[in-house]
Structures are given as C-alpha cells and as structure tokens.
C-alpha cells in the first residue's frame, strides 16, 4: 500500500496530523497546507527579481525586512503550473527569521487538517494529501528549510 495511515506516526514528516491548524493557501485550483508554526506572516509582493539559472519553481528574490528572500511557487513544484500571484507567505522556523516566501493567490485561511486526511508516500518537501475535498498538498517546511541550509 502506497499511502500512509493518518493515525500512524509519519516518519518523513513533522507536524502533519488530523486536527492540526495550518494556513491553507490557494494557487489556481490547488491548495497548499503550511504548518501554522512556520508561517511568519503574509505580505504583498511588489517586486520579484528573477534569479538566473534557478529551478523552475524559484520565481526570484524579493526584499523583506531589509534582506532578500527567495520566492517559491509551490504550484510549479507540484506540477500544476500557475502564473501571476498577489501575496507571499513568509516561512521561518519558530522564533527564527524568515528563510523564504511562498506565493499565493490570496492571504489564505487558517483551517484544521480534516480528520480523514492522510499523506501519500512522501518524496520530498511537498506531499500530496488524500482525503481533502480539493486537491491539496502538504508543505514539509522543516525539510525545505534544511534543504536550503545545505
């Protein structure tokens, strides 16, 4: 069986469990759930400077709080390519500075992970969620942060 039972501990993830509060953001018809503790804020994206040689899901660099941060498009990463954006969600470990911005069609909403939700087998820091009404993905922020530090 390729899916993992939601009731069991998730060996490759931290924080995903039914009932936990997450920020749900939308990109087109797809939703992304971000762990609440890793969301540092939502800011308007005025100017994103493209980054040459970047991966397709790296939109560029934007200035926040006096320093440049990479801007990521999870829709491209999940294979549901999207254009345009309105805001950026600041990601950062609890009590630490932000390390990236994730673009979103709007400010998003804080919701609880549905009781029936479970993750498909994880292949990276973005994992498809089964059991949600809409196509949804879980962002494993700790793993993303670790990859950025390498």
């Amino acid at each position: 069986m390729s899916t993992i039972d939601a009731a069991q501990p998730q060996p490759l993830t931290t924080g995903f469990r039914p009932g936990v509060v997450v920020l749900r953001i939308r990109r087109g018809n797809v939703y992304f759930l971000l762990p609440r503790l890793w969301v540092r804020g939502v800011v308007p994206l005025h100017e994103v400077v493209p980054l040459p040689r970047a991966k397709p899901w790296v939109v560029g660099l934007a200035v926040h709080d006096g320093r440049p941060l990479p801007v990521l498009d999870l829709a491209v990463c999940s294979g549901t390519a999207e254009g345009g954006h309105s805001v950026g969600v600041l990601l950062g470990a609890p009590d630490q500075a932000s390390f990236a911005l994730v673009i979103s069609d709007g400010p998003g909403r804080f919701v609880s992970v549905p009781a029936v939700a479970r993750l498909e087998k994880s292949t990276g820091w973005l994992t498809r969620i089964q059991g949600c009404a809409q196509t949804s993905w879980w962002l494993e922020t700790a793993r993303l942060a670790a990859e950025f530090k390498e």
């Binding site: 980054l51 040689r53 991966k55 790296v58 660099l61 990479p70 990859e147 950025f148 530090k149």
Partner: peptide, 18 residues
C-alpha cells in the same frame, strides 16, 4: 544563496546582497 535554488548546484551563484 542556497545551491538548492539553482538548476545545478555546480553552477549556483554563491551570495546575494541588497
């Protein structure tokens, strides 16, 4: 700049500034 941002880490740009 994290090498993870670039298509190949071999050709990543090392730093950014404002």
């Amino acid at each position: 700049l994290s090498p993870a941002l670039f298509s190949t880490s071999e050709r990543a740009l090392p730093r950014m500034r404002l």
